[in-house]
Design a protein around this nucleic acid. Structure first.
Lengths: 106, 106
DNA sequence: ATCATATGTAATGATTTTATTACAGGTAAT
DNA sequence: ATTACCTGTAATAAAATCATTACATATGAT
């Protein structure tokens, strides 16, 4: 279960989830870990773009990664889904809103 | 409680929630209905921008509006929060991902 | 050596989102 | 009729996000 300690943390997760591609990535990874190139093929998107999406998911701590060796002997970067489960309601938004820092993003 | 009938519906809500200003709007409206001009003053943002945010929240069915007459006699557009409560987990994302239509937005 | 398949990232471009300024129109009170 | 509010939107600008192309590097197999 995911708990949010600040508005910024909540927002980070919501932003990570508010994209079709990233939702699809989560859907695929929910079936098991996968490495980047294979994942890009399955989703039909370019690898650089996939990196970008994975980075956002990783920043929100929704996925993790590690390097593994394929049967072929080549190194591959595997991504796996962290447990994703949380509730949203107006009380929590009200409670966390004050800790939203009005950032301008880099 | 909010239920999602498709990936697109889920995404619409997530997109509506993935913005600081809109989270703050929800926080303010959770304390009670408010009219646009007053809300803009409270949030310290321009009215045209607020309209844009409110429109997104309304499309996601998170808020509703109606015209009312102020004590002063002037017409005001009041916005109020609809019940916001739902759960997110990987099973539902997996189930709804196939019904994500890869849109290019207008 | 060449091919096939991996990772990783720089540079660039296209599109969307966010935000401001500037209008036009309405009602009520002084 | 001027002031002080309100709604509503067009036009534009600024910033962030999304997406592609191109390249460098590495490993194993033929």
């Amino acid at each position: 279960m995911i708990y949010f300690n600040s508005g910024d943390e909540l927002l980070l997760v919501l932003e990570a989830l508010s994209n079709q591609q990233r939702l699809k990535i989560i859907a695929v990874l929910s079936e098991g870990k996968q490495y980047v190139s294979q994942l890009a093929r399955e989703l039909g998107i370019s690898r650089p773009l996939l990196y970008l999406h994975l980075q956002k998911l990783e920043e929100a701590k929704l996925v993790s990664s590690d390097m593994e060796i394929l049967e072929s002997g080549k190194a591959a970067k595997y991504y796996m889904l962290n447990p994703v489960q949380f509730e949203i309601n107006e009380q929590m938004i009200h409670a966390l809103a004050p800790s939203l820092t009005m950032k301008k993003k880099n």
